[in-house]
Each structure stands twice: as structure tokens, then as C-alpha cells.
């Protein structure tokens, strides 16, 4: 294990903490609303955007935000129309984004910039700046406010969108808001976890929490807790093993998910009932 200046260590730990919080909180929506493939596309759009940012020498996070916003704008109306096979559109856009990312990476000037580009691909916690931390913490605050204020609307939409619409909720507005929030969470976390793996941090913690709770309120509480723990343990694993940070975080969250599947009380309840009836 290498010795690091304490400021760098604190910045990195805080970065991991906020990225874990932001991604896994938006994950609660993504998993429930079956937006997994959309979110997956979003993470690759953010990756292409970051590469684009590096190519034209602007902040890669800004590039990532622009690209994921663009994707949310295109995909929102397309996914809205149930008659359109959105998976085909996603498949097309996904490969298109990857192609763009590789082209942009190819044109990034200078060796140092190429190394930065690779860090965006794999993630590097030590490239987190104070600026990133501020943005991540503001975003975390916004998402908490969003969930608290619109909790009843979000629950109604996640249960059944048509029923929610029939009670007078403008579901389209919330749907787009969720797409945008996912895009921003991905864009802000891409430097830490890496463009190729950031989406696992959205899906895994919520999927883990799903194995234990029937109350959505608890999913909203435990999903970010699991996300934060995954990031912190992943960070520690990365330090002691020299694994890339993104890979370590995803590895840990995948282990949590596997354990959750094995020990999930939701999956054991059936047996318990039979046992009770028998006795």
C-alpha cells in the first residue's frame, strides 16, 4: 500500500462517497422503471462526451453532461412512444456512441491527454478535483430534494405509469427528469468509476437492496448506503491490490449483489409458509 497525502486521500474518499450516493440513488428509479438499457446507453454517451471534451480541450465532465443530455433529449420522446421498438433505437445509439468515443479518443492531442482519456475509460479516483467534489455534493443534495418533494408522484409512477397518469400526474415530466438525473449522475461519476463500468454502480446497489425490502422507502434509504459502502470498500481494495478503481468498485458491488441473492429473505418466504402450514 502506498502512502498518500491526507488531502488527496480525503478528496478521494469523499469522491467515492458522493459518486456511490448519486449513482445508486438514481439507480432506484432506473431499476424499477426498467430503464436499465437506457441508462446503459447513457453511461456510454457520457463516455463519448468525455472523450469529446478531451479532444476539444474542454472539461471532460462538461462534455459528458452535454452528451448525456443530448441522449436524454433524443431518447425520451422515442421511448415515450410504446409502439416504437426502443431497444432497437438504443442498440443503434449505443454502438454509435462507442464508435464516436473511439474516434474522439484517437484524436486527443498529446500523450498526457491520452492517459487522461484512459483514466476516463477505467476510472481514476485521484483525478477527482475539488471542483468535481463540489458538483457531486450539489447534485447529491438536489437528488435528495427531488426524492423528498416528489416522493408521492415517484411512487405512483413507479408502481404503474398509466394509473399515475390517470390520477392527474404529468408522468412525462418526471420520466424526463429521471432520465436527465441519471445522465448527470453518470457524467459526474465517470471520472471516478470509469465510463465502461459506471452503470454497474447504478444497477448493483439497488438490485441488492431489492433482495431485502418490500417498502420502496427502504430501497431509497438502503440503495445509496450499499452504493457508498461499495465505493469505499472498492476504493480500499483498489489501494491494496492496485486494481483499477472502477473495476474494484464494481467487483465489490457485484459481490454484495451475489450475497444478497443467496441470503434474500424474499426468496425464502415460500419455504417458510409451507413449513408453517405443515406444522
Amino acid at each position: 500500500m502506498i502512502d498518500f497525502p491526507s488531502t488527496l486521500l480525503i478528496t478521494s474518499i469523499l469522491g467515492a462517497l458522493f459518486a456511490g450516493f448519486a449513482c445508486s440513488t438514481t439507480g432506484a428509479f432506473v431499476v424499477r422503471m426498467n430503464l436499465a438499457s437506457i441508462g446503459y446507453l447513457m453511461s456510454h454517451a457520457a463516455f463519448a462526451g468525455a472523450a469529446f471534451g478531451l479532444m476539444i480541450s474542454i472539461d471532460p465532465v462538461l462534455g459528458a453532461i452535454i452528451f448525456s443530455f443530448g441522449i436524454a433529449l433524443i431518447l425520451g420522446p422515442l421511448a415515450e412512444k410504446a409502439r416504437l421498438e426502443s431497444n432497437i433505437v438504443i442498440g443503434f445509439l449505443f454502438s454509435f456512441m462507442i464508435a464516436l468515443a473511439f474516434i474522439f479518443l484517437n484524436f486527443i492531442p498529446g500523450n498526457a491527454a491520452s492517459a487522461r482519456a484512459l483514466r476516463i475509460l477505467w476510472g481514476s479516483i485521484f483525478s477527482v478535483s475539488t471542483n468535481d467534489l463540489v458538483m457531486l455534493s450539489i447534485f447529491s443534495f438536489i437528488i435528495v430534494i427531488f426524492v423528498v418533494i416528489f416522493y408521492k408522484e415517484l411512487i405512483a409512477i413507479m408502481f404503474n405509469r398509466k394509473l399515475a397518469e390517470s390520477s392527474g400526474i404529468n408522468t412525462r415530466l418526471y420520466y424526463f427528469a429521471i432520465l436527465f438525473l441519471t445522465g448527470i449522475a453518470v457524467s459526474l461519476s465517470i471520472r471516478i468509476v470509469g465510463g465502461l463500468l459506471v452503470f454497474a454502480l447504478i444497477i448493483n446497489p439497488t438490485s441488492t437492496a431489492y433482495q431485502f425490502f418490500y417498502d420502496f422507502k427502504k430501497i431509497f434509504i438502503f440503495s445509496p448506503i450499499i452504493g457508498i459502502i461499495s465505493c469505499l470498500v472498492g476504493f480500499w481494495l483498489s489501494l491494496i491490490s492496485d486494481f483499477p478503481i472502477g473495476a474494484s468498485i464494481v467487483l465489490i458491488s457485484a459481490i454484495f449483489f451475489t450475497i444478497a441473492i443467496i441470503f434474500s429473505p424474499k426468496r425464502k418466504r415460500g419455504k417458510l409458509k409451507i413449513h408453517q402450514k405443515a406444522s
Binding site: R32, I155, M158, F159, S167, Y214, D215, F216, K218
Partner: peptide, 21 residues
Amino acid sequence: LAPFLCKDIVMSGRTGKIGTF
């Protein structure tokens, strides 16, 4: 395995009536 309690689903019917914010 859907993570919703019956009371929250029934409450969701009042969402429009309660109003935004």
C-alpha cells in the same frame, strides 16, 4: 417481489388530488 406496500399504492391514488409540492 415488487417493493410497494398496499397502503402506499392506495395513497398513490390521492397524488393528483393532493397536488404537486
